[in-house]
């Protein structure tokens, strides 16, 4: 009797452990301070100005700990914080030059420790998205953006929403895998306007099947 009772308890424990692994949620197998100590040991003395890249902001920390599936409370908090960070152009015009935007979408360099500080810098959108039909070298981490503006009838409200999405992807979807290009000051306001035009200008190859 006692033996079978113990066996049951042990089995319950084991299955609980299995579930926590399989669910892919935060498993808290190791203390945050321990992880922080390893991180510190791995980047002991980053170059001037680079320590901020090793450290996490609140949003990055929560998305890491929850493996991009924040609970309802965290979800709302991230959303509010990221929405507040979006800065629209002062003149309200979110569309720049689509030709310059094409370069922003194509260029994959900038900001790497192997890059020159004043070298070309782009959003590398093609790493993750299909955009113009003629460009066959595109990645699949994000959805296809083929004919993005055309499908939306070039509506001004949709262009503004796309600008916000590119400025801060997490202002739309907390813990999105897409970088927060404006919020992280990776792209300039002009570059974000240009790439928004690449999606929304009727002359852009994105909208020419």
């Amino acid at each position: 009797m006692t033996i079978s009772h113990r066996t049951f308890a042990a089995a319950a424990l084991i299955s609980a452990a299995l579930v926590s692994v399989a669910s892919g949620q935060q498993t808290a197998k190791v203390a945050p301070e321990t992880i922080a100590a390893y991180v510190k040991n791995t980047w002991k003395a980053p170059a001037e100005g680079w320590q901020a890249r090793v450290d996490q902001d609140q949003t990055q920390r929560i998305c890491s700990e929850t493996r991009n599936s924040p609970g309802k409370g965290d979800f709302e908090k991230i959303l509010a914080r990221e929405v507040a960070s979006v800065a629209y152009p002062a003149d309200g015009k979110v569309l720049g030059d689509w030709k310059a935007g094409e370069a922003v979408a194509q260029i994959g360099t900038g900001g790497q420790f192997s890059d020159k500080a004043d070298g070309p810098r782009g959003g590398n959108c093609y790493a993750c998205h299909q955009m113009a039909a003629k460009e066959l070298s595109f990645g699949t981490l994000g959805p296809s953006l083929l004919e993005y503006g055309k499908i939306r009838k070039y509506a001004a409200a949709d262009a503004k929403a796309a600008y916000a999405k590119i400025y801060n992807a997490q202002s739309v979807l907390p813990c999105s895998n897409m970088p927060r290009f404006g919020h992280n000051k990776f792209l300039t306001e002009q570059q974000i306007k240009d790439v928004t035009a690449y999606l929304f200008d009727p002359e852009s190859p994105v909208n020419k099947p």
Binding site: K29, V30, R53, V54, D55, Q56, Q60, C63, P179, N184
Partner: peptide, 12 residues
């Protein structure tokens, strides 16, 4: 495992 899921830097 934690470092595999750890987001950071200017590309998140």
């Amino acid at each position: 495992e934690a470092m595999f899921y750890r987001r950071s830097a200017v590309m998140d």
